[in-house]
Structure formats: C-alpha cells, structure tokens
Simulated scan of single mutants.
Amino acid sequence: MVKLTFTRELRLLTPSSFTFVFQDPLRSGSPYITLLARFNNLTHPRVGFAIAKKQIKHAHERNRIKRLVREYFRLHQHELPPLDYVVMARTAVLELSNQQIIELLDKLCNRIKRMAQNPSAPSA
C-alpha cells in the first residue's frame, strides 16, 4: 500500500541542501512559479521553498502557496523522480486560484520529469 504522508524526510531542511540545488539545477518556470530541481542520492523526492517576502508580502499568502505545494508533493511523491525541488514564487501567483496553482505545478513537474529523463535537452 502506498503511503501518502508528508514526513520530515520529504523536506529540504538545511542551507546546504538548498545550496546544492541552486548550484546546477534543472529549471522549469512560468510567470508565476519557478521550479528548480537536482538529482539527490536518495530514493525519494524532497521539496523546499524559497518564497521571498519581497515577492509575496503577506504571510497568509505565502502560507497558502506553501500549503498547496506541500499537498501536491504529498499526493504525487511516488510519481516524481528522486530529485530535490526548490519552489520559488512571484507576485503574480496571487492572481491564481488554488486549482490553477495545482495545474501549474503539475505542468512544471512534468516538464522537470522530461528533463530528468533526457538530460541533454535544454531547460525551459
């Protein structure tokens, strides 16, 4: 049976983990969200957030974005390759509904999956 929990091991927790992803990432972006990813040495994906107060001023709005991303990763963790993901959001993401954000995440993750399977392809 597949467990759909979002445990501590599925999160990027240390600054060195974030630095590792920022050094040489697979990049998938939109005007709303940028998704960076890099292969890890684990058997599961991990996710972290780099959502600046300068981009999204109110805490409740940043928390909404993080809550939606965590839920997406919780439900799709077994479909994702073993990558470390960092999610960055821009101010324009506040215009989107929750459903639109989930659809955008799905599109960005699928793009990252294709890049991970074919590393010679250019990043978008």
Rank of each mutant, 00 (worst) to 15 (best):
Q23C: 12
E71Q: 10
V21L: 10
L83E: 03
P25D: 13
N63D: 07
S97N: 00
L80P: 06
I51F: 12
D24C: 13
D24T: 15
L35F: 08
E71W: 05
L94M: 08
F39C: 01
F73I: 07
R70G: 05
L80S: 02
Y85K: 09
V69C: 00
S97I: 05
V47E: 00
A37S: 03
E61H: 15
Q77S: 09
T91E: 15
H58E: 14
R70T: 03
R38A: 11
P82C: 12
I51N: 01
D84W: 04
L68Y: 02
Q23L: 15
V86R: 11
H78V: 05
H76N: 12
E79S: 12
R64N: 02
F22T: 13
L68I: 09
Q55G: 11
T34W: 01
P81N: 07
H60K: 08
R46I: 10
E79I: 06
P45L: 07
Y85F: 15
V69D: 09
L83K: 00
T19R: 15
Y85H: 00
G48I: 13
L68C: 05
K54C: 04
V69I: 11
Y85A: 06
F39I: 09
P82E: 12
N63S: 12
G48V: 11
Q77T: 10
K57R: 15
D84Y: 02
H78M: 03
Y72K: 07
I56E: 05
H76D: 02
L35A: 04
A89C: 03
P81W: 03
L42H: 02
V93A: 08
P31G: 13
I65F: 03
Q55N: 15
L26A: 07
P45W: 08
L83W: 03
T43P: 11
H44D: 01
P31K: 10
H76A: 04
P45F: 03
R38E: 00
R64E: 07
T19D: 15
H44Y: 14
P31E: 12
L36S: 13
R46C: 11
M88I: 00
K57M: 12
I65M: 01
A92V: 11
T43D: 13
A59V: 06
N63I: 01
R62Y: 01
F22V: 11
F49M: 15
V86E: 08
I51M: 04
E61S: 15
A89G: 12
H78R: 10
P82H: 10
N40G: 03
R38Y: 01
Q55S: 14
A50V: 14
Y72I: 07
P81R: 06
F49G: 13
L96M: 14
A92R: 04
L68E: 06
L36W: 11
V69A: 12
K54N: 05
